[in-house]
């Protein structure tokens, strides 16, 4: 069943409609919400939403409960290749929880929260941005980790990054839902404006496994990998100091040692290498720059340090 969960009239002969598809079978009231498309340039979740929905359709007898799929919280953004909400220059993921009495976007955000609230688990799928590629990972803040980590480990991701909480992140969908008691897991994978089929396949297995662990799925599932958990580890950030074109010489997911050559920033005009980029620490390259043009400060890579006293 496809349902419009929030709607607002646009200026000329059109409504902005946020839709979900509910797939329901069996007697269980358990509910998993799969949410994506908050940022219009993040598309990995689009294919994943299709995969999950179509697979469950084909094996509907294996489902006992409700799966709600929200493919596009920001439909105008996806449709117009805009990260934020077009016309407003707003990052939708900084407007939650919204307000029923607020502006158009605040009202829509409030309706989205009302609709998802009460799910047993919500999976919020993001795909970085156009600049960075991410290995499939789940991110959560330190305060939410005790409740979310067991679920994150079911989801077949490579990494769980537990980060310090920041006040500004209190305006996210995940923070709002977690605060209201709906366990919400944020997935980051791939890169903006692209679909990485391999990662969608990986998370597809993870979501089916999560459904199984929740007692909502009796069909076959693939074994899931044990993620690296960032707890007690540090993350090294490699930022460019020069401006130019970044050309990496490591691959995504490589393990590097501090001082290893991981790429160059070159100047196409002067034909010079303007910066030799080195690993700032030992560890796993879990973020790598995809968009080559860089300024001073552009993030080139993130490296997860090994646990103290141990190696990978």
């Amino acid at each position: 069943m496809i349902e419009t969960i929030a709607s607002a009239a646009l200026a000329v002969n059109e409504n902005l409609n946020i839709q979900k598809r509910r797939i329901k079978n069996g007697s269980s009231k358990k509910r998993l919400s799969l949410v994506t498309g908050t940022h219009g340039d993040e598309l990995e979740g689009q294919y994943l939403a299709y995969m999950i929905g179509s697979y469950i359709d084909e094996h509907i007898e294996c489902l006992n409960g409700i799966v709600d799929i929200y493919p596009a919280l920001n439909p105008m953004g996806i449709d117009s290749l805009t990260r934020g909400v077009p016309m407003f220059d707003l990052d939708m993921n900084r407007v939650f929880p919204g307000s029923k009495d607020g502006t158009m976007i605040e009202m829509l955000c409030s309706m989205i929260i009302d609709d998802i609230s009460g799910s047993d688990v919500c999976v919020d799928v993001h795909s970085s941005n156009i600049f960075l590629k991410e290995i499939p990972q789940i991110r959560m803040s330190v305060p939410t980790a005790p409740a979310l980590l067991p679920y994150a480990k079911m989801m077949n991701v490579d990494l769980v990054w537990i980060h310090e909480s920041a006040t500004v992140l209190e305006s996210t969908l995940a923070h709002t839902l977690n605060t209201r008691g709906t366990k919400t897991i944020v997935v980051e994978m791939g890169v903006g404006m692209r679909i990485t089929k391999e990662y969608c396949d990986q998370l597809f297995d993870g979501i089916l496994n999560l459904l199984k662990e929740l007692g909502m799925w009796s069909g076959e599932t693939a074994p899931v990998r044990e993620p690296i958990v960032s707890e007690g580890r540090e993350v090294g950030f490699v930022n460019s100091d020069a401006a130019g074109i970044f050309v990496p010489c490591v691959s995504f997911g490589d393990t590097v040692e501090k001082g290893d050559h991981i790429g160059d920033v070159v100047d196409p005009l002067s034909s010079k290498t303007v910066e030799t980029v080195e690993a700032v620490c030992d560890g796993l390259v879990f973020t790598l720059r995809e968009y080559p043009v860089v300024y001073g400060g552009s993030l080139l890579a993130r490296i997860l340090k090994p646990a103290a006293g141990g190696t990978e």
Partner: peptide, 20 residues
């Protein structure tokens, strides 16, 4: 370059992203 807002980056960070 990245459509970030300088007035959402304070107090800033000297080793961070460009607008930070």
């Amino acid at each position: 370059m990245d459509n970030t807002d300088i007035n959402r980056m304070f107090p800033g960070y000297s080793l961070g992203e460009t607008t930070q």
